[in-house]
Design a binder for these strands. Structure first.
Lengths: 110, 110
DNA sequence: TCTATATGCATAATTCACTTATGTATTAAT
DNA sequence: ATTAATACATAAGTGAATTATGCATATAGA
């Protein structure tokens, strides 16, 4: 598990990118996908996940669709066009930041 | 200038690594060095810098030496042996995190 | 000359994204 | 039957940052 400090500020970027790559997903599914992609190193907590999804929805980057699975509720999230256009930006912002950090810390990242 | 969100949690690592690479430095000098290394993209604020340096000192990772430059005070910081041994750890922790993020975001970082 | 900018340290108040804790409820496994 | 997994949600607390403020010296330009 990574130091949670480092994760700060990356959650929204993760959510947007995962939704772009995998299309319609619900919250719990996202936590599992991220866990898988990170080899168990990034475990999203519900207390961070759901408020963050709600915020992205309120900002118009995500839209939702609630589905009843038998007696269970599932809330599917999809990128809106606005959200879609922001993903690229957020990801390249992150990559830029990483490059800068590589210079400051004098490390190779590949 | 990078999104300040992303910078969260990286400050201590930056301070330790810069001090390892450049030896004895004072606070203001660190801000300038980091600004230079980051091509003006990382501008450390005093409100973050000084408390962070004090904390690292209190934890025994840094030791200080106050020098009078004419009528001006300068406080030099150096890594303690404990601090020195922690730098590698912190940096590789960061690199690991970056690799993980690369997988999650499906991006190349070089 | 005076005035803004740079140098140099420090701390208090505030913000905000996160963790931790709690709550509710269904489903599957042992 | 009981635990673990699935699935959502929100409130309280934390802590590293930003913002604001304070003090003081040095330098450059108008």
């Amino acid at each position: 598990m990574h130091s949670p400090e480092l994760l700060k500020g990356t959650l929204q970027t993760i959510l947007l990118k995962v939704l772009k790559d995998h299309g319609k997903m619900y919250g719990y599914e996202i936590t599992q996908r991220v866990k898988e992609l990170s080899d168990g190193r990034i475990l999203l907590t519900e207390g961070a996940l759901y408020p963050s999804l709600h915020k992205l929805e309120a900002e118009g980057l995500l839209k939702t669709e609630t589905v009843m699975m038998g007696k269970r509720v599932r809330k599917y999230y999809t990128l809106t066009p606005v959200g879609k256009s922001l993903v690229k930006e957020r990801v390249s912002e992150f990559v830029d930041f990483i490059r800068t950090m590589g210079n400051v810390l004098q490390v190779e990242l590949n």
